[in-house]
Design a protein around this nucleic acid. Structure first.
Length: 259
DNA sequence: AAGAGGAGACCCCGTTTCTG
DNA sequence: CAGAAACGGGGTCTCCTCTT
């Protein structure tokens, strides 16, 4: 426990570093998923008044509904496997109806590498960063932006990145590298973003369209793949999302949350 | 109709090596 | 040393089927 206390003390310094960053959520949780450290951005986004209001509580208590449940499942997975969750692209749906794309990273918090419980997982530490603006100052921004536009406007088709890269006079490797550098996303992640943005729009604006039909219109080969990806990204199935946007409680888990 | 899951194919991404 | 190229393993997607 001594080691644990020391580590948490060190983490308070990290917490202080993340406090002034409005686009990054920072948190540390114990083995039971209870918040031990949070930054101010998380306090704001969870609609809490202070850090104290979050400490000792789990994401399921702070974010009632599918999103809190999804955070909880992620935490359990990191803690039980001891494996990090890196670069998970997520759409966070806020209580005020807004939505924002984030990249989430979670690492297991381990005990000191010596002593009886050497290396034991004590909890999880993570950040969730809002997707930033593209780096427009990069010399080949124009070329890559054109490719990105192609991906966004052809979201209903399979990704033919190799062909598009060749047409632009670039290699596939170069395109992927530049996408990361400029957009902080891989081409496939950008395609996923475009498809799910379109799907969210159709779920709300075309209530008569079936989930399967929307899947087809958004470039998925079937409803199964669409539902799987939609749920992995938003924590909700397409029909739950549709009911939520129509102002109904989705069946299953109770839902009304902030990020 | 919608959701979930398994198998197999293929593509992406992280890492290493090469080059200027 | 930075950027480009190459490569192999893992992850993702499609197809298919079953369940609710």
């Amino acid at each position: 426990m001594q080691n644990n206390a020391l580590r948490l003390c060190e983490l308070s310094l990290v917490e202080a570093l993340f406090d002034p960053l409005p686009d990054v959520v920072f948190f540390v949780k114990d083995r039971d998923g209870r918040y031990l450290r949070v930054n101010q951005t998380l306090v704001r986004r969870s609609a809490q008044r202070s850090k104290q209001a979050l400490l000792g509580r789990t994401s399921k208590e702070i974010f009632p509904g599918a999103m809190g449940e999804a955070f909880w499942v992620q935490d359990r997975s990191v803690i039980s496997s001891g494996a990090a969750m890196q670069r998970h692209l997520e759409l966070h749906l806020y209580a005020d109806g807004g939505a924002g794309w984030c990249l989430t990273h979670k690492l297991p918090l381990r005990d000191e590498p010596c002593g009886e419980r050497a290396g034991a997982v004590l909890g999880v530490v993570g950040i969730s960063r809002d997707l930033g603006r593209p780096d427009q100052s990069h010399p080949v921004y124009g070329q890559i932006a054109e490719l990105a536009q192609q991906i966004r406007s052809h979201y209903d088709q399979p990704l033919h990145l190799g062909d598009w890269a060749r047409a632009a006079g670039l290699t596939l490797d170069r395109v992927e590298h530049l996408f990361q550098r400029i957009f902080h996303l891989s081409p496939r992640e950008m395609l996923l973003q475009a498809r799910l943005d379109a799907a969210r729009r159709l779920l709300v604006e075309a209530p008569d369209l079936s989930v399967a039909a929307i899947a087809m219109q958004c470039g998925y080969s079937d409803q199964s793949a669409f539902t799987r990806q939609f749920k992995a990204t938003t924590s909700l199935t397409p029909s739950q999302y549709r009911r939520l946007q129509q102002g109904q409680q989705p069946s299953g888990a109770p839902w009304r949350a902030a990020a």
